[in-house]
Design a protein around this nucleic acid. Structure first.
Lengths: 348, 348
DNA sequence: TTGTAAGCGTTATCAC
DNA sequence: GTGATAACGCTTACAA
């Protein structure tokens, strides 16, 4: 009834060789000479029998499972980052496949601490680990570092000694704000994408400040407020700034919102105040989410290299797993300023 | 130097029992009696040594790997569905964790046919499989069916005998259009979310027709056009209908766009024609993407139970893997009509 | 160049 | 109740 599993022994028998030879041929082991004739016979037998090695046995014997793990921190507020998950996964799976490996994905939940990523490591379920998101359990992280387990951070964790790949949030924000300055704006509001405990948020804010500084513009606390991932936060913060700063002090003529999604909410507030974009307020976002270019007016924003982020992170990890020498332990990926119509033209 | 791996033998030694006993205790094997004293000693030893069983060895011996696979079809046009991937994953990982299992994710690329999901199955890397997306290689599918490999489709593949979990697109669309009809609309345009070769698209269109039918309204070909996942397609199709139907025949007073993202483009076209939503044209979308409620005006739409889709699919698969009896082989999940402001009030 | 044999760390089958 | 002992299917020194 149950068709018995085809093993390497079956292939060996059919090819008239030993299992060793089968293994050597199929794994294309280097530095060993096998006659063309033997190789051909093995390959033929394997193909004929439709032989597929069993992963578990392979893993047990070779001490490598051919799987890398991607750990996501789960936070309902992280809606913004959702937008890129598919693209990131896509890039990641691409490089993983290039190496004949697979991707295991896991989501870390707050109430699920016992099932941490450490278990994946200890049970040898994965050869390497990609940690995405800024917050991790310290003890577990430390143990990873001590063990020297192949790990790459997607994002940044200042002060840690981990390999990491991140987007250059600082320069991206600086460039975006610079764009506004070059257009003639002098008072530029800023809404962050999230609390500045998130490194991405603090880096973007730093870029905003640096751009102002470089242009000799003063930094005004009243012009800066904190978004929180979703449109609602953008709406509230912009409304507040319009009611206070805009109405009673010198009005700002531009705003840098460090997240398209948050910017979408800010826009609603601007609309509500009967102000026009870009005539009254120029707006620049961050992320370049899919609908950014279809909003009214099309949103000038910073494009994130999501796909590349996946590829680069995966590549880096695989090289570490392979024991290769890593030249750049921390990589920052470039972004691109996408100029559309929400900033209008040069101001008088 | 290298701290030797802790094996079950170490635990057995420390507890003064055999490996067999360790295995029995740790796996909580039923139908066997083990003295409380022994159990306690084993547990204590395991905890003391920080013992974690090696997955590969476990898999090899027990014939179960504790991993289920999720296969995504990759299509750049599938931007719309991206929106839900995180939520789906979230639900899926939740149930998978509840069973102490893990999730392996893979993306099927057109040019990567040799690395199909069949390999995952043949190499016994996964215990069960979730196939998401409508298009799969026939031969491979057939072989899955013949082998009786635990498989659940996320979505529908009419005519196949697979277990499946899907959203009730037909009734959702029907309800949405019904809402417009109850508001007094008689001429209602429709833009599909994609080509009707996609089952979701054809089901939604079917719902639209049925609602019309039930209300005694005639189906007008000129009022129906085909979207293609992105805002641009919505923009083009709506523009076309406004130029032809709207201008030269009886204008339609409402539109059902079977995708929020496509609806976003349609809105731009309506705006361009100096028409107002909802005064001139009432609009209802589909999906309830995050920004739907922050658009201007907030979009009435159909909410998809993404998280639940993940949970239900995962649950179904795990039950199959466990060998349980499945009561409902094909599950349709309910949706919810979210009424906001893009449809206005009852018409005269 | 190819074969022999010893693991890899569990689980499962029987005796005791 | 508990413990030897044999799979599980593959890789890899080492031997021939």
């Amino acid at each position: 009834m149950k068709p018995k599993r085809v093993t390497s022994q079956d292939v060996a028998d059919r090819a008239g060789v030993s299992r060793t030879t089968v293994s050597l041929v199929l794994n294309e082991v280097q530095g060993i000479q096998i006659s063309e004739e033997t190789r051909r016979r093995v390959l033929e037998a394997a193909q004929f029998l439709d032989y597929v090695p069993e992963a578990a046995a392979q893993a047990l014997a070779s001490r490598r499972v051919g799987i890398i793990g991607l750990i996501l921190t789960r936070s309902p507020r992280h809606i913004a980052s959702d937008t890129f998950l598919t693209q990131i996964l896509d890039g990641l799976v691409e490089v993983v496949h290039e190496q004949g490996m697979r991707l295991l994905i896991d989501i870390l939940e707050a109430h699920n601490q016992k099932e941490t990523y450490l278990h994946l490591v200890r049970s040898k379920r994965i050869d390497g680990l990609i940690l995405s998101g800024p917050r991790f359990d310290d003890a577990a992280l430390k143990s990873l570092e001590t063990d020297g387990f192949p790990t790459v951070l997607m994002g940044s964790l200042p002060g840690s000694g981990f390999y990491s790949v991140d987007v250059d949030n600082f320069n991206a924000a600086r460039e975006a704000v610079n764009h506004l300055i070059k257009l003639g704006h002098r008072r530029i509001a800023c809404i962050t994408n999230a609390a500045t405990t998130y490194t991405a948020a603090s880096e973007r804010l730093r870029g905003y400040r640096r751009a102002l500084e470089a242009a000799g513009l003063s930094y005004d606390h009243g012009l800066v407020s904190q978004g929180d991932f979703d449109p609602e936060s953008g709406y509230q913060q912009m409304k507040k700034m319009l009611q206070t700063e805009y109405a009673y002090k010198a009005p700002f003529t531009a705003a840098f919102v460090a997240s398209d999604v948050v910017a979408f909410g800010a826009k609603a507030a601007i609309r509500e105040h009967h102000l026009k974009i870009p005539e009254d307020i120029a707006l620049v976002g961050f992320d370049d989410v899919p609908f950014a270019r279809y909003s009214d007016p099309p949103l000038t924003t910073v494009r994130l290299p999501a796909h590349d982020l996946g590829r680069t992170t995966g590549n880096q990890l695989i090289r570490i797993v392979m024991g290769e020498k890593i030249d750049r332990p921390r990589i920052l990926l470039d972004t691109e300023l996408i100029i559309r119509e929400s900033c209008g033209a040069q101001r008088p």
